[in-house]
């Protein structure tokens, strides 16, 4: 999979599972009806709103005052501690001198999705069974082994590079050219996704200004530059797929196949956003920071 697409897919996945997290967290606290306490002991059934401090060693004495009991500045002071953790969002911490262009391109990509990609992927999904689409996705992912291997090595992650090699050998042979994934099924080896943007970040190169790319979506200067080594040097398709038209065709096919697994997700995250562009921009940049740290 194209690294940029991979990042974007992750981004979508992230926002898709937000609901799970909220529920997890809620359920992680207490289930009054089942009588399982929030301390995990499974013994006490306590109304969450009437928790007895004696039964909760972590609860501080002093009552259950609502944090928002009275409106005024004084009771807001306790939230100031979070300013350090989350920073000053008004200061535009993500470098974005191209915001005007980026918003236009986000709108363009949005139209492209609804007018072209979604209808085509919907029809494709209806025609092609999931098993076949999964096999195609696995095949393309396996092809990008050189991208993952080289970037793992460049980040001195030799163990991961070794696992990638074992996965590639297994998947290419027993997995019928990567259509199946015995590396994961048999050996329980997960892929180690690394791209050149992460490699540059690992060695201290900053993200640079945020850039929304046509079709590919959110990116930044560093990651845009990194598309070249990943896609035109390390990707085998650059050598074995001849001619621009065929390259575009393969890219489009891969994109449609990938989208067929994610129909509805884009609409979902768009619906949840107050400012969709900022939502995508910050989500992308936060994910990249996390990926580089790992």
């Amino acid at each position: 999979m194209n690294p940029s697409l991979s990042c974007r897919s992750d981004l979508k996945t992230v926002f898709l599972i937000f609901f799970l997290l909220l529920i997890f967290t809620g359920c992680s606290q207490h289930d009054a009806e089942t009588g399982i306490s929030n301390d995990g002991s499974g013994t006490a059934a306590v109304d969450p709103g009437e928790a007895d401090p004696d039964e909760d060693p972590l609860a501080e004495p002093g009552g259950e005052e609502d944090l928002l009991g009275e409106e005024g500045d004084d009771d807001l002071d306790e939230f100031d501690e979070f300013e350090d953790e989350f920073g000053d969002a008004t200061a535009n911490e993500v470098s974005d001198p191209l915001e005007g262009y980026n918003r236009v391109m986000t709108s363009f990509n949005d139209k492209l999705y609804f007018w072209v990609l979604k209808p085509v992927a919907t029809g494709y999904k209806w025609l092609v069974p999931e098993m076949v689409r999964s096999g195609i996705a696995n095949f393309f992912h396996n092809l990008l082994y050189p991208v993952r291997f080289v970037n793992n090595v460049l980040q001195l992650k030799f163990g991961n590079a070794g696992e990638e090699t074992i996965r590639f050998l297994y998947n290419t042979t027993f997995g019928l050219l990567g259509v199946w994934d015995p590396g994961k099924e048999w050996l329980e080896l997960d892929p180690h996704e690394e791209d050149f943007g992460q490699t540059l970040g690992y060695w201290g190169v900053g993200a640079g200004p945020h850039i929304v790319l046509p079709i590919l979506g959110p990116s930044n200067l560093r990651d845009t530059f990194s598309l070249y080594p990943d896609n035109f040097v390390l990707d085998p398709k650059a050598y074995y797929v001849e001619g621009t038209e065929r390259k575009v065709g393969v890219f489009a096919f891969e994109k449609v196949n990938d989208t067929s697994f994610r129909l509805g997700q884009y609409e979902s995250i768009k619906k949840d956003a107050v400012d969709f562009y900022i939502f995508l921009r910050d989500g992308y940049e936060q994910i990249r920071i996390k990926e580089i740290k790992e």
Partner: peptide, 28 residues
């Protein structure tokens, strides 16, 4: 840690903080 005990104030998924994302959107 609050007066009600330990409560979740944020979730981070693959490095994306819910609170951070909303902060940026609201500030914008």
């Amino acid at each position: 840690k609050t007066k009600k005990g330990w409560l979740v104030y944020d979730l981070e998924i693959l490095g994306v903080s819910i609170v951070q994302t909303y902060r940026s959107q609201f500030a914008s």
